[in-house]
């Protein structure tokens, strides 16, 4: 199958682990996978993206503009910033909780992410908005949001790879003592995704 998946967010949100899990799940499924990270200068706080490209006739490490099938965005403005990569009928799963850059706090522009999610919902039929802080509450930390995001994409049937393969990769790649809680987080995401799909 051919599939282009874009993950975007802010450095420190755990996007790289999501990308690695998706890529290896596809590989376990026998697909040819290429992926790439764009990382800026900073350890944290800058815009980051991961591009996952599944298919045999793939050459560019980054998704060519307008060819993305699915976007997992960990931050509302980052979703809008990367829309050029998405197909007109692409699927967007976006966190409504903003990461406010310090420059915004200094200028007090009032950025709170709502304008971004509204724009996405208006222009992309398949936009799914999820509040990371709310869904992560039972797990005690927003650090699990990256795994929940994968669950949502799976539950929606948007990822293109079987749930069981993603779970198998979580078991392989996550530190042993965190495997169980990550699997629970993944299951919570799947449930939410399935709810979205039926509504």
């Amino acid at each position: 199958m051919d599939r282009n998946i874009l993950i975007c967010g802010v450095g420190g949100q755990g996007t790289v682990l999501s990308s690695k899990l998706i890529a290896s799940a596809f590989m376990a499924d026998g697909e040819v996978v290429h992926s790439a990270e764009t990382i800026g200068m900073a350890q944290r706080g800058g815009s980051v993206t991961s591009h996952i490209r599944v298919g045999r006739a793939v050459f560019s490490p980054l998704i060519p503009e307008g060819r993305g099938d699915l976007m997992l965005s960990f931050e509302p403005a980052e979703a809008v910033r990367n829309l050029n990569y998405l197909k007109a009928d692409g699927i967007v799963i976006v966190n409504s909780h903003p990461v406010k850059p310090i420059t915004e706090s200094l200028k007090e522009t009032g950025y709170d992410g709502s304008e971004m999610t509204a724009y996405l919902q208006q222009h992309y039929l398949q936009t799914y908005v999820v509040d990371s802080h709310e869904i992560c509450r039972p797990f005690g930390s927003v650090k699990f949001f990256n795994i929940i995001m994968l669950g949502i994409a799976c539950g929606l049937g948007a990822l293109g790879v079987a749930q069981s393969l993603v779970v198998a990769e979580i078991e392989k790649k996550v530190k042993e003592k965190f495997v169980e809680v990550n699997k629970q987080a993944f299951a919570a995401g799947v449930k939410l995704g399935e709810n979205y799909a039926t509504n």
Partner: peptide, 20 residues
Amino acid sequence: AIACRSDLPALPQRPPVLCA
């Protein structure tokens, strides 16, 4: 040509900064 969206909301700048 890829439809270039001209109606995007103004995006917050996100320059790299020293961590918290």
